[in-house]
Design a protein around this nucleic acid. Structure first.
Lengths: 165, 165
DNA sequence: AAATGACCTGTCAAAGTCGATATGTCAAGG
DNA sequence: CCTTGACATATCGACTTTGACAGGTCATTT
């Protein structure tokens, strides 16, 4: 149940409302996990029942800011350290890269060029994020990993497009 | 609905039984998509109803070998070329890499060392696969991409372990 | 002859996810 | 004053995925 742990992880960094969590899934966590608000709100309620998060502030428009509790932190640590990762993947972009090889050159070039355009925009986005990082920010390493991975993929895609010329 | 297209993709490479498809999801397609036999058999039946695959052979133990039809090939091409990729990710390993930064050094080192061991085994596996590739094998590029990506991840993990030393 | 293990197909209930629908607040600009 | 758009929470039906259950075949080894 990674939804639960991704929420705990986000709250461990920063107390947030459900709405803010939804945006974080679309931004900072985008390359690792996705969840929409229709999953987030019920899960926050379950986490509160389980004593792993608590409402620490009620603001405008009925907003509730949740923070992780000690129990929540313990569960997050337990999951990260003691449970075995599920390594099975389900990644549509990777599937398309794999199956792209079945297409005739012309189609493959079009498909991979589209990916290239998307990834180049992603790269700009990540670079901008990197340039805004405060010194000592612990997630700098993750941004760096993202950029290195993108670099490899971009080089590969350029080779593929070239070869399908 | 990527399950459907991943099956069509596998059958486009090689006619197979449901059982064989299940193994291919665990091996060649492992880094892109996963499906278990309880999803595969019903989906094969639906694909047959839709005329996208057909039974081309009945073998021992009630096995049925399916092959992709022209309609199936057309649908696969349409999906790859004309539909927009769903770029949202749900990758537990990546989530753990991201959240690992929340752990104290000692825990983080243990977690990342476990990943390192797993990935080194994976690398061996991929290298072996690469060495067995026949010349002209169209999926050589995908194996190469996998190896390059692994290289980046391994280097990053080694740095992280070092830093948490 | 029997046991083991790989091969092979299938179903089902439970859990997880998506997309639509609903409801409302608040700030800024026209 | 009214509209627009971001903020904010919540539910629900449809669909997808998982893990357990179920049944059976065939070849090899003991």
């Amino acid at each position: 149940m990674s939804l639960r742990h991704s929420i705990l992880g986000l709250l461990a960094r920063q107390p947030s409302t459900g709405y803010e969590l939804a945006r974080k899934f679309d931004h900072s966590l985008r390359t690792a996990w996705h969840a929409s608000h229709s999953q987030i709100y019920p899960e926050l309620a379950r986490l509160e029942d389980a004593g792993m998060v608590e409402v620490v502030e009620r603001g405008a428009r009925g907003s509730k800011t949740y923070a992780i509790t000690d129990d929540g932190r313990a569960e997050l640590r337990r999951w990260l350290v003691e449970s075995d990762p599920d390594r099975s993947q389900r990644n549509e972009s990777a599937l398309r890269l794999f199956l792209g090889q079945l297409l005739p050159d012309e189609d493959r070039r079009r498909v991979f060029e589209r990916d290239l355009a998307y990834l180049e925009a992603e790269q700009d986005h990540l670079r901008e994020l990197q340039s805004k990082l405060e010194p000592g920010e612990p997630f700098a390493a993750q941004v760096d990993l993202g950029l290195r991975t993108q670099e490899v993929l971009l080089a590969w895609l350029r080779e593929q497009v070239e070869a399908a010329g």
